[in-house]
């Protein structure tokens, strides 16, 4: 099974029809296990208390906001280098989903920040760079929605996505530099590698569940987009016949 074999949309739709129930089922089961671990098993943090439970949605959403952008970057390469016909379908469908998860990461981060920091928003390095990422998602969607011709829209979006990939590390770095300059004392720091296994396992399970959710929605959206293009082609045939 090579990737190019699935350049044929009909074959791709067949594959999706076969795989989707399994992926959706696995996602649902992982979510059930993850939520059970979070609410029944995972301990409360000795500093943050039960508020740490917000982490189990916040961190997977933040992870997905990056993962989704990377999916779009891979698709952008597929569009520009190999002209793979499914690549621009994949990129176009990933953008709104990525924007939704980035928004969730911001919203849950804010809800986590209010009890921890005492305000809804701080110009913390991590929050700020996620905000910039969110704006970039919206810009990408605006660009591809504004250009009417789907092929041109896909290529313009692909160029912008790749420019974004090059810039995201620079933005991240500069925002961190800016942040340390203005807020020398870190208000609150998440454990990083020192996180306790009792919390790490539920977090990983939830991250897996969210990733499965992304794959499910992404495949469904891609199926819709393929049908939409098919309808567009059929309408054009109909119009040319009517002449």
């Amino acid at each position: 099974m090579r990737l190019i074999d699935y350049a044929n949309p009909t074959r791709f739709l067949g594959l999706v029809a076969r795989l989707l129930p399994w992926i959706a089922g696995a996602t649902a089961v992982t979510f059930a296990i993850g939520l059970w671990l979070v609410f029944a098993v995972a301990p409360a943090d000795y500093q943050q208390g039960e508020t740490v439970k917000i982490m189990y949605v916040h961190v997977p959403c933040a992870w997905l906001s990056m993962f989704c952008y990377m999916t779009m970057a891979g698709s952008a390469l597929g569009t520009l280098v190999w002209r793979h016909p499914l690549a621009d379908v994949s990129a176009k469908c990933a953008a709104p989903i990525g924007a939704a998860f980035t928004f969730l990461a911001l919203a849950t981060g804010s809800l986590w920040g209010k009890p921890m920091w005492g305000t809804w928003w701080v110009w913390d390095a991590r929050l700020t760079s996620v905000l910039v990422l969110f704006i970039m998602y919206l810009g990408l969607i605006a660009l591809t929605e504004t250009i009417e011709d789907p092929v041109r829209a896909a290529r313009a979006g692909a160029v912008l996505t790749l420019v974004g990939v090059v810039n995201i590390p620079i933005i991240k770095f500069s925002v961190e530099w800016w942040n340390t300059l203005h807020q020398p004392a870190s208000v609150f720091r998440m454990g990083g590698s020192t996180i306790d296994p009792a919390m790490l396992v539920p977090l990983l399970v939830m991250a897996g569940a969210f990733t499965g959710l992304f794959v499910t929605v992404h495949l469904m959206a891609m199926r819709n987009e393929i049908l939409r293009r098919r309808i567009r082609a059929m309408r054009m045939i109909e119009a040319s016949r009517a002449e």
């Binding site: 409360a44 208390g49 039960e50 508020t51 917000i54 986590w112 209010k114």
Partner: peptide, 8 residues
């Protein structure tokens, strides 16, 4: 859920 149940 503790004191911050609303936020969670």
């Amino acid at each position: 859920l503790g004191t911050h149940a609303g936020f969670i």
